[in-house]
Amino acid sequence: MPREGAAAEAGPDPAADPRTNIYLPRLAVVDRVVDEIADVRTLFWHFEDPEAQRAFRQFRPGQFAQVTVFGTGEFPASLPASPTEAETFFTVRQVGSCTAALHRLRAGDRFGVRGPYGNGFRMDDFAGQNLVFVAGGIGLIPLRSCILYALAHRSQYGRILVFYGAKTPRELMYRENLRSWEEAAGIECHLTVDQPGEGWTGHVGVVGGLFKKPGVQVPIENTTAFVCGPPVMFRFVIRDLTGMGLSPQRIYSTLERYMKCGVGKCGHCCIGVAYVCLDGPVFTCEQIQKLGEDI
């Protein structure tokens, strides 16, 4: 570290300035709250400071933010909104104390956000490719951004396919999006549930089963796949896709880890040679296998 003696010791305190203090959350306001499925809630929000809002809106699909709920703590959350959409939001399942506290927030309440962090999906790298999205349960949250981004830049990509499964019809997320994807041209959306009911007439079974559904043809040539979901589903889908001939280098996923800082300092999310917060959370399946930890 360059030091020029006592004279250099004076100068602005990097921790006092919000522009250089990477740990300082910015104040955000909840616009409205929408229940997605049981225990999962979406909060639309904006920054109080328009400058912070403008800077944040440069985020990429697949990035994440650190969310502070005052009095409880801070946690990482994916950004399910696409930067091509007007509104920013978090979709969060209630699993611990912080997420429970976030669920208690109402329109007008303040909370803290810093970010965006992480590598995100380099969507330009997939130009000209077929995109296959495979999600299970709340695994659709991080992929939603990517799907909407691709649809907003429809002409840049080949076929776009979405395979999405949940335990029950009630647990299918982002239903408005699902409906429009099922109806829209330019996207092939296939849904499945493990346990049908409530007038479900669609496919029943695991997500991987959709690949063999009559009328479905999963492209392998010139294709990139995005897989996100519970560990068991992940393992089987990867097996199916690689079995069909897709290289692990062409399959992407995002990793979730316990994180405190989001900026490569606290050490909690470091696996193998990677810091999930800096080098991820987006990794190829090949990279994940090399890192050698459970997903």
């Binding site: 250099a8 100068g11 921790a15 300035d17 250089t20 990477i22 490569g264 800096l278």
Partner: peptide, 13 residues
């Protein structure tokens, strides 16, 4: 690397 820890930086300085 990418980020400078401001609390460490001011103590170190």
């Amino acid at each position: 690397r990418q980020f400078l820890d401001p609390y460490y930086a001011r103590r170190r300085r």
